[in-house]
Write a protein that binds this DNA or RNA. Structure first.
Length: 189
DNA sequence: CCGTAGATCCGCT
DNA sequence: GCGGATCTACGGC
């Protein structure tokens, strides 16, 4: 069985702790990516989570091994990337919502069709398009290529607030961001 | 600047 | 059938 610890984070921990620790972690996909500046936590007792009603064909990866990817189709158009956690057998995960672009900027610009750096990865659908992540990565390990994770530097300052774009459990403060980052999808208040 | 519509997959009623 | 962990283009102020 593979390790549940990656980039200095134990993915067996509750998803909101993992989401907070993921801020500042570098994620690359085929050598293209950057620093995570925005995340959201979801877990099995959370009405807003895909895993709330148990496993389905779409969400089965959320019930699989931790430190793996859960990728789903959003609004029939976009791909969204989650890092799977595990709490007591409930499906749980962290939605990666925004990156600060660091490597592979030319490829990101080509895939996104814009040169504006802030528009490359400032949203869950944008960053999967910029990195080339699709359904093909659903259920795959984050510990092996083409994924590559690197630990966050010390002294990261994290802010939090309510999650975005949901209608259930709207006051749970499980959205996390890098303080002062201009690469988040929406400002924190 | 703001609000809204449209694209169109998948799970639930 | 409908709503959604979204994004973009477009129209109005």
């Amino acid at each position: 069985m593979s390790s549940t610890i990656l980039a200095g984070i134990d993915f067996l921990a509750p998803s909101h702790l993992v989401a907070r620790q993921l801020i500042g972690v570098t994620v690359l996909f085929d050598g293209v990516g950057g620093r995570i500046v925005e995340t959201e936590a979801y877990d099995g007792e959370d009405p807003a989570s895909h895993s709330y009603s148990g496993p389905t064909e779409r969400n089965f990866a959320m019930f699989g091994p931790p430190a793996h990817a859960y990728v789903y189709r959003s609004y029939g158009i976009h791909w969204c990337l989650n890092f799977v956690c595990r709490e007591e057998g409930h499906g749980a995960g962290v939605l990666i919502r925004a990156l600060e672009p660091v490597t592979g900027l030319a490829q990101m610009r080509e895939r996104r069709g814009t040169t504006d750096e802030w528009l490359l990865c400032s949203g869950p659908g944008k960053l999967t398009q910029a990195l080339g992540v699709t359904r093909a990565q659903n259920g795959t390990s984050l510990a092996q290529p083409p994924f590559e994770l690197a630990a966050a530097p010390a002294g990261i300052e994290v802010v939090s607030g309510p999650r975005i774009g949901i209608s259930k459990a709207i006051d749970v403060p499980w959205r996390f961001g890098l303080k002062g980052s201009r690469y988040v999808s929406k400002p924190f208040r």
